[in-house]
Amino acid sequence: MSENKKWMPRWFYQLASPRWSYEIMGKLLPGFAVAATLLLIGGIIWALAFAPEDYQQGNSFRIIYIHVPSAILAQSCYMLMAVAGAIGLIWKMKVADMVAKSCAPIGASIAILALATGAIWGKPTWGSWWVWDARLTSMLILLFLYLGVIALHSAIESEATAAQSSAVLALVGLVNIPIIKYSVDWWNTLHQPATFTLTERPAMPAEMWVPLLIMVIGFYCFFAVSLMMRTRNEILHRERRSSWVRELIEKR
């Protein structure tokens, strides 16, 4: 490891220490929590009350401020889970395993949010609660991939084996996501040409996309908060035999 130190930043190795990660996450948490609260509340008020209504879809357009950030976040979360899993596999870094494990339930819930808002948006736009739109279908498959990772993780008793196995599965899923996305897009154009897509819109005015951007950043901050909370719990649980956790508990 020592010869690698030149090109790998110091914090990367410090991340390998559960204690250091636990403490740094504890320091970062309040900041992210404040940022997430401010951004989300501000963004929601702007989105609901101040953003102009869409000339085609009217006020149902306001669902975009939940739907698009959750769809983006669900995909990034899978990416983070797979990358963290790969780091855990390659460098045997326990904290990365814990991050990957903590990503799965959050990502699955966000994917459900994206699906639910997409379905609700479909009702006024298409006239039915569910349409086999390419984006919605891809999101549904992404949810299935999340559920697979969660199911595999909970089926294996040994923590280390479960982490490694689900990392392999997440990586296989990551390789497959572009293929699935391409095939579903292609399948969609074959079966329903020229549908009214939800998100591909020509030139949104600034009053519309600025709150959207705020919501996206707010969603990411919220994700960071939830992820760090879960990872800290996971660190405490997995490091329960170490002396620093013991001291921490005794001090309380």
Binding site: E53, G58, N59, S60, R62, I66, I106, T117, I120, F222
Partner: peptide, 25 residues
């Protein structure tokens, strides 16, 4: 919301529920 109130408010309510779950759990 110009007749779309149910859909908009339902979406935001689901979002709130998911957010609360992700903090409470």
């Amino acid at each position: 919301m110009g007749g779309h109130g149910l859909y908009v408010w339902l979406s935001y309510a689901i979002a709130l529920v998911i957010f609360v779950i992700n903090i409470v759990s």
